[in-house]
C-alpha cells in the first residue's frame, strides 16, 4: 500500500486489522485503537481519500490503495489548518480521539468548505470524544473552514 506517500510492502497474516498493521507493523502510532466495533472512531484513517474505521478494515483490503493517517496531515513542517484549528479552539484534551476526529474533519472540509454546525456535528457523529463535549471540536473545524476561505490554498500540479 501507499501510506502517507510512501510505498510499503509487508507480508502479513490475512486477518490483520488495518489499525494493527499501521500501528504495529508500520510504527505509525498516531492512529489509535479504541473499541473494535466501529463506534468510537479513534482509528479513522483515509483509504483513497475516504475516511474509514481501520479497526474493522482488514489490512489486506487496503493493499494497493492510498492510506493517509494523522502523520500525513502536516506538510513540510506546516500544520494542516484543521490541526491548527484544534490547537486554537481547545478542540482536544487527552488527544486520544483527536487523530480520527481530524481525519474526518479534513475529509469534510475537502468536500464542503463551508459546513454548517449541523453538518459538522453529523460528520463527526460516528466518533466519540469523552473529554471535550464536542463544542470546541465544532469550533475547531469552523476555525479551519474560515481560515481556508480567507487564505486560498495553492493547488499543486501533482
Amino acid at each position: 500500500m501507499n501510506i502517507n506517500g510512501d510505498e510499503v510492502t509487508r507480508d502479513i497474516e490475512p486477518r490483520t486489522l488495518l489499525v494493527h498493521h499501521i500501528r504495529d507493523n508500520l510504527g505509525l502510532t498516531g492512529t489509535h485503537w479504541g473499541c473494535d466495533t466501529s463506534n468510537c472512531g479513534t482509528c479513522v484513517v483515509w483509504v483513497d481519500e475516504e475516511p474509514v474505521k481501520s479497526c474493522t478494515t482488514l489490512a489486506a483490503m487496503a493493499g494497493g490503495h492510498d492510506v493517509r493517517t494523522v502523520e500525513g496531515m502536516e506538510t513540510d513542517g506546516v500544520l494542516d489548518t484543521v490541526q491548527e484549528g484544534f490547537i486554537q479552539c481547545h478542540g482536544l484534551q487527552c488527544g486520544f480521539c483527536t487523530p480520527g476526529m481530524m481525519m474526518t474533519a479534513r475529509a469534510l472540509l475537502d468536500r464542503n468548505p463551508d459546513p454548517t454546525e449541523a453538518e459538522i456535528r453529523e460528520a463527526i457523529s460516528g466518533q466519540i470524544c469523552r473529554c471535550t463535549g464536542y463544542s470546541t471540536i465544532v469550533r475547531s473545524i469552523q476555525w479551519a473552514a474560515k481560515k481556508e476561505q480567507e487564505t486560498p490554498v495553492e493547488v499543486s500540479a501533482s
Binding site: G30, E71, I87, P99
Partner: peptide, 9 residues
C-alpha cells in the same frame, strides 16, 4: 497540543 495533533503523543 503540538505533539498530540501530530499523532506524536
Amino acid at each position: 497540543d503540538p505533539r498530540l495533533v501530530r499523532g506524536l503523543g
